[in-house]
């Protein structure tokens, strides 16, 4: 057994030294471009809404922008374009809300064949689930600490 382990380490070293490297400079550049373009798109939609709907408050318009980006990304996912953008853009396309939309819609499409309830609904959050759970847990914790250290906010 000891022999086997010794060999293991030697082999793993060999594997590590031969692993093909991700081209960091070019992937960072492409993520920057794609991520930046998505943010510009969001800002553009924001400005257009401000012009069209001047009577709405800023926070309402911000929610509308998120919803619009979500809708655009979902449509692009459905027609099979978003995964190609993501393959080029990497984290630049995964981290914005468009990536979140992609992570919910793609398992939904994949599992549609097992039916609406047993397939689509129950598998929709297999990728985004951890993000949602972490988000909710963190907000509960923050709420708890706010309550303990600065008392309940006056509404």
């Amino acid at each position: 057994m000891a022999m086997m382990n010794a060999h293991n380490k030697e082999y793993l070293k060999l594997v590590a030294s031969n692993t093909p490297k991700t081209k960091h400079i070019s992937t960072m550049l492409s993520s920057f471009i794609v991520g930046g373009l998505i943010c510009c798109l969001g800002q553009g939609i924001n400005d257009v809404y401000m012009l069209w709907l001047p009577h709405l408050s800023e926070s309402t318009i911000k929610s509308l922008v998120s919803v619009s980006l979500f809708l655009i990304a979902s449509t692009l996912t459905c027609i099979g374009v978003y995964d190609k953008i993501s393959e080029f853009g990497g984290a630049g396309a995964i981290i914005p809300i468009t990536g979140f939309a992609n992570s919910i819609i793609s398992p939904a499409i994949e599992h549609r064949r097992e039916g609406i309830i047993g397939g689509l609904c129950s598998n929709m959050f297999i990728i985004a689930g951890p993000v949602l759970v972490t988000g909710i847990v963190i907000s509960v914790l923050i709420g708890f600490f706010t309550l303990v250290f600065s008392g309940a906010p006056l509404i």
Binding site: K21, T22, D83, N102, I109, E110, I127
Partner: peptide, 17 residues
Amino acid sequence: ERQFRFPLELGTPRAPQ
């Protein structure tokens, strides 16, 4: 892909290895 990895339309860059 479905059995061992991610949904097809999920945008994840493939590792070079």
